[in-house]
Structures are given as structure tokens and as C-alpha cells.
Write a protein that binds this DNA or RNA. Structure first.
Lengths: 206, 206
DNA sequence: TTAGAATCGTGAAATGTTACACAATTATAT
DNA sequence: ATATAATTGTGTAACATTTCACGATTCTAA
């Protein structure tokens, strides 16, 4: 049970977390089963049980899972029992959208700072946050001990900024820049390029 | 060779396309190899060759690939030799960001219309486009024969809007709403929830 | 003209992931 | 008290994906 957990399994846990939260908060359910959860997510019940079995035994035969207990366990596994400060790099339209998004705080993250290199944007107030100069990137990230960054800048400067973030101590980067980033092994990068996703679907369009 | 191509293979083609475009446009290269491409993407050369072999033989032994020819072939495979009109549903911050994003047009897509239900937003000009009332969704999509939609609305209305889009003829949906969507088999959905991605990475944070 | 290096495409092996199916347990109803 | 239905966790089988490794081809340089 202390073997390396497959990344594909880790990738599904947040989805379970999100759906379980919905079951509890929106529908007031107390218990659920791997069948019910799987049906709602389009995933087989066996897969859900197998995924969870990597971490322990959270259910009860005949009864299923107590939602709040399972939620607690999943948050614990994913290190979401604390709130992670996040640095947003880039104050363009997408940076704005992220800074105003209300969905972070209840799910384990908090936008702690926003950086931009454009003098016209520096000092601008974005939903309670002041846009800082990119020159303050290293000092602020070190001072606040920030580990997570979101990159919303053009591809041309994305690798440079990533290097600076990593040097400053960031170990998780969510990048919206349309470019592959090089990072050391201990740093995780997750990509979000809407065009890549649309192009994948285009294959299936007639 | 006419067996079903694995979806995971299709998923990598746009990434190859993007990197090859960069090699050609940014670095002025004419030829490349599976090794070079793989190194830049963090993918094994064998995987790239195997992926491409599903569709034909595009390289030359000893020489590698002619970039422009391979680009052409990939665009053809992914149905990107034409431009697809896209409907954006939701004119919030994220809808704005997408409507202003310059990265669609050269990669096969064009934002053709934006919808919102808020009377204060309807009529607003967004980068040349006028925000339309959500009541015009069906008629506009049918009229323009739109097959692709981007969902940037709250989870609470996402399933409803998806149903309406699918009824109107949309068969590819890129959803930013933090909820799992139900669609018929012939419809593709791709998800983008920044929090899900951050939560996945949080597992690896100490 | 020949040797050597680079590279592709691909069958087979290795590895990884998902689905099946069942013993064990729990709850419910009679 | 017992039968029935629901459900978990898991070993094993089935299936999917990746990697290996090699014959064939091409280019370059001596």
C-alpha cells in the first residue's frame, strides 16, 4: 500500500471530491455508493472503489460511503486541509478572470498576489488585490512562501517566468501559455490551452 | 489501419501541431526528427513515431520529417483545414478573456457569437462581437450551423445550457463550469476547471 | 563507391489500467 | 431468526499503452 500511486488515480480524486461536495451541499445527501457516484460521473463503480482502495478502506459493505467522512479523507489525501496561497503571473483578461473567480477559496486555494510587467497595470486594484511589478516576484513569493503559481502570460515569456518562479520556490505551476515548459523533476506543471482541447474535439467533427 | 484510433493518441496530435508550428515559425526550421520533437515535448521518440504511424508514413528514414508537410497532414487529420465557428456562452470575466484572445484564428477556430442572460450585458460590444440574448441561442446556432461551443457560466445552469446547445446542433463542448455534464454519445465534452488541476498538483506538495 | 551515422516504421515485449466477479459484511423486511 | 438485497474491497483476467529493438532506408563524407 506504500507503492507509488498512479498519477491517473490522483487525477480522479479531485473529481470525486467535487461531486461528493455537490451531493452533500446541493442535494443534502448523507451517504452514497460507488454506483451512484460512478453513474453521476460516467465512471465505473469498480474503478472508484479501486482508486479509493489505494489509500484505505473508507466504505462499509452493504451501506456504501458516509459522504462527509469520505470528503474529509479525500481532502486529507490531497493536502487540502489547509489553504494554499497562489501567485497569478499576468494581469491580462485571463488574469482578471482568475483574480475575480470566487471558486478558489472553498476548494483549498487563495489568490495571494498578482504580477504584471506593464507599468499601466501595476498598482491597479483587482478584486482587493493590487497588481505588483514583476520585479517584486521573487521577493514576494519567498516572503509569503508561495508554492503554487498560475501563468497567464504570452508563450514568449512563459519559460523565463517559469524559471524565475521555480528559483523562488514554486513547485506547482498551472500554465495557460500555449507552450511546453521545462522544469526540474520535483516541479509539477499542469497545462490549460483551450485551443488544444478544441483541436482534439475537432477530430471527431464531421 | 482503419481500426479505431485511441483517444489518447488524438489528444497528443494538437500538441505535436503546436510544437511543429513553433519550430517552423519561431525557429525557421525546415526539418525535424521524432527525437528532436520528443525532447522538446518530454515525450519518447518511439511514442511520436507510433502515434503518427496510425495515420500513415510521413517521415523519411535517415532524414526525419519535413515540418510543413507534417503540419499539413496533422491539420488534415484533425479537420483543421477549415475554420470552425465557436459560440461562447457566458459573458463574464472568462467569456471576455476568451472573446479577446487572439490565439484562436490561426489555429482553426473563430469566435462567432457570445451569449448572456444578463440584460445589462446584452448589446455590449466585445472585441467586435455584440453580446446576444440567450433567447437567441438556438436560432443563431442553427442559422450559422455552429458545431462548437465554449461554456463559461455557473455550474447551476451548465447542464441546461448544454442540453439546449446539443439540441441546436452543437457536438463539441469545452466547459469551464465545475460540474460533470451529461451528453449523448455523439457529443464530445472537454473540461477545464483550474481548481481540479490545482488540487491534483496539491497531492505532490509538501 | 563504400562506410558510418541518423532516422523511420513496426512487431513484439513490457508495463500500466480497467473491468470482472465474488467472498464478506451490513441492513432490512418478514 | 432467517432470507434477501445492497454494497464494499480485491485478486485475477482482460485490455490498452508504452517501450524496446531492429531491419530498411537515406544522407554525408572520405
Amino acid at each position: 500500500m506504500t507503492t507509488e500511486i498512479p498519477e491517473i488515480v490522483i487525477g480522479r480524486l479531485p473529481v470525486y471530491l467535487r461531486e461528493l461536495t455537490r451531493l452533500a451541499e446541493e442535494e443534502g445527501k448523507i451517504n452514497t455508493s460507488s454506483h451512484e457516484l460512478g453513474k453521476r460521473l460516467g465512471i465505473s463503480s469498480a474503478q472508484i472503489r479501486k482508486d479509493l482502495s489505494h489509500f484505505g478502506e473508507f466504505g462499509k459493505q452493504g451501506t456504501g460511503y458516509h459522504i462527509n467522512y469520505l470528503l474529509e479523507q479525500l481532502r486529507d489525501i490531497l493536502h487540502l486541509t489547509r489553504e494554499w496561497d497562489v501567485a497569478v503571473v499576468g494581469a491580462g483578461f485571463l488574469g482578471h478572470a482568475l483574480a475575480h473567480y470566487k471558486g478558489f477559496s472553498h476548494r483549498g486555494f487563495r489568490i495571494a498576489c498578482v504580477f504584471d510587467s506593464d507599468p499601466n497595470k501595476i498598482g491597479e486594484i483587482m478584486d482587493g488585490l493590487t497588481v505588483q511589478s514583476i520585479t517584486e516576484l521573487e521577493s514576494t513569493i519567498k516572503e509569503k512562501n508561495i508554492k503554487v503559481a498560475i501563468l497567464v502570460i504570452p508563450a514568449s515569456v512563459a519559460q523565463d517566468m517559469t524559471d524565475r518562479l521555480v528559483d523562488a520556490g514554486v513547485t506547482a505551476v498551472l500554465s495557460y501559455a500555449p507552450i511546453n515548459l521545462s522544469v526540474p523533476d520535483y516541479v509539477k506543471v499542469s497545462y490549460s490551452d483551450p485551443v488544444i482541447q478544441l483541436q482534439q474535439m475537432a477530430y471527431y467533427l464531421r
